[in-house]
């Protein structure tokens, strides 16, 4: 990982592309730690928090959202040029987000059905992660990102160390919490075994299967999990729906979703 800035108070900027703003809001949700964040960095550009904008360059840039328009495809190049250390935050920025479902359909057809004047719409055929357009220094997963991960990331950048963010499955967290496995004990299909931890295993604690908000874990054996789901009675359609959500375009999930999709 690149060495972070040496300036005493690094300049932080937050930029938004195609997204719901939820990940940026995670930064504001830090509540107790918010003052410490504000004390540790100079917030130079963060429209959710302040109208005051300080021009770049920036030491640390957090980028939320995916690239879905020709205009944004240009704008991200400018953001990259202004940023020393660029971190993408959330499923949109790291995998294309829920809007990457367009990658499996026909955008022209969608716009013709949704908009009165589709000719006013200037959009790309796909939703793609930031890393498909510019070099990204670190990717923070999740829909939305976790507050704990975000703080750990900022802390690691301030220290100039590798972030302590592990890429294992959600199962490990379930077991540490003492949650009873919903898949084994209840027969509830769960994406936990192939999903990257970060949420702290929330859904299984409420008797729900994992939805895969943090995308694929480091070694996601999706085909084996799909076989287990099938033995539990899931159909190909169920599987495609499960793998095509917030991280539909993340490679292992895309491959598995495609494998069970009906042709055409």
């Amino acid at each position: 990982m690149k060495k972070p800035p040496v300036r005493k108070k690094p300049r932080l900027a937050v930029f938004k592309f195609a997204s719901c703003d939820g990940c940026q809001l995670s930064l504001l949700s830090c509540e107790d730690e918010l003052l410490a964040v504000a004390g540790a960095v100079e917030i130079a550009n963060f429209l959710e928090a302040s109208r005051a904008v300080v021009k770049g360059p920036y030491d640390v840039t957090l980028v939320e959202g995916s690239i879905t328009t020709p205009h944004d495809a240009e704008r991200i190049l400018e953001v990259r040029a202004q940023s020393k250390f660029l971190v993408t935050i959330g499923a949109c920025a790291t995998a294309g987000g829920i809007q990457a479902l367009r990658n499996f359909g026909d955008v022209k057809e969608f716009t013709s059905l949704v908009y009165a004047r589709p000719d006013y719409i200037s959009t790309l055929a796909t939703s793609t992660p930031i890393a498909s357009h510019v070099k990204v220094d670190y990717e923070l997963r999740g829909c939305p990102v976790s507050k704990a991960n975000l703080l750990e990331l900022l802390s690691s950048l301030l220290h100039g160390r590798r972030p302590n963010i592990r890429e294992h499955s959600v199962c490990l967290e379930c077991k540490k919490r003492g949650t009873v496995c919903v898949m084994v004990a209840h027969g509830t299909p769960c994406l936990g075994p192939v999903t990257h931890d970060g949420c702290g295993a929330i859904c299984p604690a409420f008797h729900r299967g994992c939805y895969g908000c943090f995308g694929p874990q480091e070694t996601a054996n999706t085909s084996s999990l799909a076989a287990a789901w099938t033995r539990m009675g899931s159909t190909g359609e169920d599987l495609t729906r499960a793998f095509r959500t917030y991280n539909a375009s993340a490679e292992p999930f895309r491959r598995e979703g495609d494998a069970h999709a009906r042709p055409g």
Binding site: L172, C181, P193, Q217, S224
Partner: peptide, 13 residues
């Protein structure tokens, strides 16, 4: 390995 999810459940339990 084709079946193993590397999910860590066996080691946790």
């Amino acid at each position: 390995a084709a079946r193993c999810l590397a999910c860590t459940n066996c080691t946790m339990v």
